[in-house]
Amino acid sequence: MKIVVCVKYVPDATGDRGFNDDGTTDRESVDSLLSELDEYAIEQALKIVESGVEAEITYLTVGPDDAKDALRKALAMGGDNAIHVNDDDIAGTDALGTSLILAKAIERAGFDLVICGMASTDASMGVVPAMLAERLGVPQVTYLDEVTVEGTTVKGGGTVKGRREGDVATELIEAALPAVVSVTDRTGEARYPSFKGIMAAKKKNVEALDLDDLGIESDQVGLSAAWSIVDTATKRPPRAKGEVVEDEGEGGVQLAGFLAAKKFI
């Protein structure tokens, strides 16, 4: 079978992230990396293969030149090859446009199972897996804490099964393949790439595609076609100085008063 794992190259969440004047992500002033939440998707794809399912794993990303780093990191963890969709006209594309590009690339590559992280660590919308499933016309099984694949044959078929933990219930869900799933950060620690994996990844094929290759017109994507844009952004204010209680014999009372005012006691 064929597994496509969608990964995103995002600004480092520990860096000082910001926006350009047009509301798009500022990629210059902060280092970027493979979205941590996508590492769980990669790990689950590798686990499915290690469980005995015969599958080819392809990583797919949409992003600028440097997004290749995210694909190399994924390939260093394991898997077979990657697709990098890169086009100047893509800058500023929202989730809806991204799902269009991903869906076209996935259809072109062929797939039995698409695995996504539960959301990106930058925009954290978490809607792309559902949009993808709609565009591909296949079932979606999202926010899984556990995922397995059963009954696949060389001709395809088989099912994907998963467990979704909710506040009030745990759902056991399954869908016939082909399907799209998204997995949470509770699926289990993602592995480190090994040194041998890093060296092997350099020899794995990364196919470069642009909008033309996917039959997408430039006015279907980009900032001008986006349904959701960043209108304004305000930097998180620096932490205000806390209230200092000088203990002149009444410290305990003042402390209790403070906590009571905040409804802690």
């Binding site: 592995r191 480190y192 790439p193 090994s194 040194f195 041998k196 994996g197």
Partner: peptide, 8 residues
């Protein structure tokens, strides 16, 4: 075991 898997 981890150091070994990573290849160190």
């Amino acid at each position: 075991g981890v150091l070994g898997e990573v290849g160190l």
